[in-house]
Amino acid sequence: MIELFWEVVTSALLLIGGLLMLVAALGLVRMPDLLTRMHATTKAGALGGGLTVLAVAVHFGEAEIVARALAVMTFIVLTAPVAAHAIGRASYFVGVPLWEGTVKDELKGRYDAQNHQLHSSDEAAESARRPDARPPEH
């Protein structure tokens, strides 16, 4: 009885994980621009990977395998948002175009291409661009 229960849990985790990764891959192909693609991959992809590895932990239930599975899960779940931030920032910085359906872009024009500063308002960006501007303080 207990074994059947764990088998059902493992199967459910595997299925959900697999489906999530398929959704992530579908989104990667179907979404119109880079940032929306990243919406699809970073969350569904990381969660799917985490769930399948969790299925391994549940299936074996031995300490050494559970420890390794949990390590993989933590790495995936912790690193996914950081990597997404890094790629998103870099792609915005080099000017990868946004989808034409984008309704609003408050970040536009606030990056300083020379010293990689990001300003908090249009006025700050404007005053930094003036020739007599002092370098920003850290």
Binding site: T41, G48, T52
Partner: peptide, 18 residues
């Protein structure tokens, strides 16, 4: 673009882990 490919590679790794 290159960032698109990087994102695709990252997903490939997630799928490989799966």
């Amino acid at each position: 673009t290159l960032p698109d490919r990087v994102v695709a590679l990252e997903l490939l790794v997630s799928i490989t882990v799966g």
